[in-house]
């Protein structure tokens, strides 16, 4: 890149070469700044509007008979999305609590629970779901698209999206009791009623 100027050793650097070099440097710094920003910003913060996304669901773990989850279909409900994986030990701590919370809210029809299986293999994932008796909708996070949307840093992480599609709460790491989950969800449910 810098060699450009070498062809004209007897003059000062031509203006167009200077412009190119500075543009390249600024471009590089911009790209690096972006990468840095991305690595620093961490997960999506509460208050952000979550754009629509869709995710396939495992057979046997469909949602209202649909084999695909679309966030847009659930405006007006509170959506809880939980990222997990079968190889993740801390996920096992909260699995029973999540199911417990689901049993509690299932009847109300105001809450949707979605499990997003983060980079996992299906047989192991199914074994895990069975082992912990999970009944709420679950599906693979194909191509890590959903987890990239939330910029998750690891599993488990759980995100709560309110009736208007706004992220209200992010739980990094496992929940330790059903009550903890209730403490997040109850205020959200009261919000618009």
């Amino acid at each position: 890149m810098n060699e450009t100027a070498k062809a004209a050793p007897r003059r000062s650097v031509p203006l167009w070469v200077q412009i190119i070099i500075w543009a390249l440097l600024v471009g590089l710094l911009a790209v690096v700044a972006f990468g840095l920003n991305r690595s620093q910003q961490g997960q999506v913060q509460p208050g952000a509007n979550i754009p629509n996304f869709s995710m396939p669901l495992f057979s046997g773990y469909e949602l209202n008979g649909k084999t695909q989850f679309d966030l847009a279909d659930y405006r007006g409900k509170v959506v809880m999305i939980n990222f997990w994986a079968s190889w993740c030990k801390p996920c096992e701590q909260e699995a029973a609590d999540l199911e417990g919370a689901w049993q509690y809210y299932n009847g109300t029809g105001k809450v949707v629970f979605i499990g997003a299986d983060y980079v996992d293999t299906e047989p192991e994932a199914r074994a895990y779901l069975q082992k912990f008796g999970i009944t709420f909708a679950n599906g693979p996070d194909l191509g890590t698209k959903v987890s990239q949307l939330f910029r998750i840093k690891g599993v488990p992480e759980t995100y709560f999206i309110d009736q208007n599609g706004m992220l209200k709460y992010a739980q990094i790491g496992p929940f330790s009791s059903v009550d903890e989950i209730k403490a997040v969800l109850d205020p959200l449910l009261k919000q618009q009623q």
Binding site: A85, S86, W87, V119, D120, T121, P123, E124
Partner: peptide, 11 residues
């Protein structure tokens, strides 16, 4: 060497 990778190799 992780457990997850062992699963993928099994897959």
């Amino acid at each position: 060497p992780t457990e997850a990778c062992r699963q993928w190799r099994d897959l």
